[in-house]
Design a binder for these strands. Structure first.
Lengths: 250, 250
DNA sequence: CGGCCTCTTGAATTATCTCAAATAATGTGG
DNA sequence: CCACATTATTTGAGATAATTCAAGAGGCCG
């Protein structure tokens, strides 16, 4: 049996699992020869095909041919497009356990640049291997389809929120989303290191850096969070959630 | 050979083809027994499994189990979610040739309501048939993957524009998008019937009805389009395009 | 023809932006 | 490890785009 299929039912679920290969969404790819045996698990944690990317280095350039899928092991990435004016438009972030490139599976071309926000380790899964195994194993095809479907729903949700939410609501959504992806246990308060700077948050949310900073200050004044630079602690996720879902009817 | 695979390379391409079953993206589904013969083409235009939906009737309710995929033949649909406050949030529109439900293939549950904007004909493709054939035929799996990948890219593009564009730019994008999906020949000017009312346009673009109306008036004053109610003629698509891509750096 | 609904337009209000300055954090070379 | 340079963030005040609310115009249907 394939670990990924058994252990993980939702994106959120596998995001909370990290370091162990056996918990990786595409575990079966890294152990292609052990697919039918239990011995695969013995290879766990061996960091096959693992690579390092320094802060600021690009993993992928826009339009580049899809050679491999990438799974973040530690650190973080951002994806962005360049507008006709040369401005960066950030399309998303990747954290440990998340897969870069599935949306390029059909066109076999990456859309958008991918760059490291900090020193980042990742696994490299040749797309040839992936496709070869996809043909052989229906379970993997299910997995791909799931990742694609869930990616659509996620993007659509983000779209909804950015279109209809105020600056504070957007930031609240953003913080809850990121914290959910970075922090394992979700109890009352949570603390994490935010590798994304204010400028990128603003870009991602369709706001300006000033507005983002003001929203942070407002949350801070209300005691909802503690934010000194990149260290964030959410003190009252419940309150943030109620701000986050306060949709403006239009 | 499967028609869909041979005839259609991109979403935009199959959108421009409509009425003929042989040009449908999922043609092979409607002729499951004829897959391997040329006789399938003889069944063309026979409107197998075709249904009618009156204006205002729902095709799908949120959370409903995925029984069938639907392909619009004529008319139009909109999809929307309900916020916690009960406000509608429009997530998209479907026009002839477009497929409803692929994003629900994995979860087997529809996300969001789907309702007819006008009297609409559609084809009903039982998901069981679809899945059965997907197992048998690799080409269909490719097709599904393509539709999913392209849906991701489309949603992401929409996300980019709504986040960073002014009201006028959003409307220009919207009009060019819709016209591209509704009108076959794309030369200079084009004319079409817009089944979407101002309120829904505003909701979709994250604006208010007043702002949308003002943007229409502005375009009208500049001679870019002629819009009397639901009849739209784009007189200067080039100018609209330059407005549409005028991204605000943030 | 009148009533109803959609769309347009106007005037005042508000959220967010722009621009600029002050402060805090980070990195660098000695 | 410090002093400095650089960059990131916060904050303020005025400008602006979009909103709200309300009234008027246009179309559609019984």
């Amino acid at each position: 049996m394939i670990a990924a299929r058994n252990n993980l039912r939702t994106l959120a679920e596998y995001r909370q699992r990290r370091t162990a290969c056996s918990d990786c969404a595409v575990f079966c790819m890294c152990f292609p020869d052990s697919l039918d045996t239990e011995t695969a698990l013995n290879g766990d944690e061996t960091n096959l095909r693992q690579r390092l990317l320094n802060k600021g280095q690009h993993l992928v350039l826009d339009g580049q041919r899809l050679r491999s899928l990438y799974v973040v092991r530690s650190g973080s990435l951002k994806t962005y497009d360049l507008s006709s004016d040369g401005d960066a438009l950030i399309t998303g972030f990747y954290f440990p356990g998340e897969v870069v490139g599935i949306d390029a599976l059909h066109s076999e071309k990456h859309s958008g640049h991918v760059v490291a926000l900090e020193d980042t380790r990742y696994c490299d899964i040749p797309v040839k291997t992936f496709n070869r195994l996809q043909k052989k194993r229906g379970e993997l095809q299910d997995l791909t389809q799931r990742l694609l479907c869930e990616s659509i729903l996620e993007t659509r949700k983000l779209l909804l929120t950015t279109r209809h939410l105020s600056a504070q609501a957007r930031l609240a959504n953003f913080l809850l989303d990121i914290s959910g992806r970075l922090v394992q246990e979700q109890d009352g308060s949570c603390e994490f290191h935010l590798s994304i700077d204010r400028h990128d948050i603003a870009n991602y949310l369709g706001l300006t850096i000033g507005t983002v900073s003001r929203a942070f200050s407002s949350f801070r004044n209300d005691g909802l969070l503690t934010a000194s630079g990149k260290n964030i602690r959410l003190n009252d996720q419940q309150a943030l959630l109620s701000i986050a879902t306060n949709i403006v009817e239009r």
